[in-house]
């Protein structure tokens, strides 16, 4: 019975972690799907989202707002800021390189990531900052509190909602159709009257917004943030995206969950010292043995 409970704990812990990875992975997947670029700065957007929500929350608390409005405003402003950053990053670092070799864009992305990390480090602090616990515990969770907390439930639910909304957006709206068209063939989309620049901007904005939600949730869950969280989270989310098959939205969620569980069980049953090593090892193995991911398709190289 004890074993079973431990297993359940690890399972739910993995689910929570995985949901966060999935939220960030969505942004990677969408951007990659549209412009075939690994947006290295995406993890930094997530970090900025966490920081923004922290700052807003603290300011509002000092102004005496009530808890619910703080949660809503903090997450909302974080989403807006992160989207603005995502938009700006695309305009500065990627747009001028759209027709350049992929290596150039990739280096630019890495540069942007390093820049943003150090920007936040210098502007804020290089230490860990405590993040106030904003989400209250619901009463009905009380009986299960030793297994799962309210925050964890909210994280899992949010991921599910975001994923469903995104799927609807991409499948059924006009901009979603334009996004799919751009992903298929950018030139052709342009010729048929799709505003490709707009589509790419929207993709970056949506991706950044989901990352910001992830940032807000994880920050209030773990309770500590620093400027470096984006880097590790970014790589892990990328792993998740690749794991599920980059370019595919359900793939990103699935990949996030698989990665979350892998980490959770591996640290729970093997050793907690090597937490990050498991993720990286999984990444390396996946890329070597199944680069198309779980849900991805192998595409023939065009000659």
């Amino acid at each position: 019975m004890e074993h079973f409970q431990y297993f359940i704990e690890l399972f739910l812990g993995g689910l929570t972690r995985g949901s966060i990875y999935a939220l960030i992975a969505l942004g990677y997947t969408m951007v990659y799907g549209i412009i075939q670029l690994i947006n290295f700065a995406h993890g930094e957007i997530y970090m900025i989202g966490a920081f923004t929500s922290l700052i807003v929350a603290v300011v509002l608390t000092s102004l005496g707002f009530n808890q619910l409005s703080i949660i809503i405003l903090a997450s909302l402003i974080a989403v807006i800021y992160s989207s603005a950053y995502g938009y700006t990053i695309e305009k500065i670092a990627y747009k001028p390189l759209r027709n350049a070799p992929r290596l150039s864009a990739l280096i630019s992305a890495i540069g942007m990531s390093i820049f943003l990390q150090n920007y936040v480090q210098l502007a804020q602090t290089s230490d860990f900052v405590p993040f106030p616990s904003l989400i209250p515990d619901f009463d009905f969770v009380e009986p299960f509190a030793h297994i799962i907390s309210t925050q964890e439930i909210i994280i899992i639910l949010t991921t599910a909602v975001v994923m469903i909304l995104l799927t609807i957006l991409i499948k059924f709206t006009k901009i979603g159709k334009a996004m799919r068209a751009t992903a298929q063939d950018r030139e052709m989309a342009l010729l048929t009257g799709v505003d490709v620049d707009l589509v790419i901007s929207v993709t970056f904005i949506i991706g950044s917004a989901t990352a910001a939600i992830g940032g807000f949730l994880i920050a209030s869950h773990i309770g500590m943030i620093n400027f470096y969280i984006g880097f590790i989270a970014g790589i892990k989310a990328f792993t998740a995206a690749v794991l599920g098959g980059i370019g595919s939205i359900p793939g990103a969620v699935l990949g996030g969950l698989v990665l979350g569980w892998t980490e959770s069980f591996a640290t729970g049953y093997i050793s907690s010292d090597y937490e990050d090593v498991f993720a990286f090892a999984l990444l390396v193995l996946i890329l070597i043995f199944r680069p198309a991911g779980i849900l991805g398709r192998t595409t023939a190289q065009k000659v």
Binding site: I92, A93, S104, I107, S108, G111, I114, F115, Q117
Partner: peptide, 14 residues
């Protein structure tokens, strides 16, 4: 330093 490195990588590429 690192801030400048990052910026320099982006600006050089662009």
């Amino acid at each position: 330093r690192m801030l400048a490195f990052g910026a320099c990588m982006v600006l050089m590429m662009v």
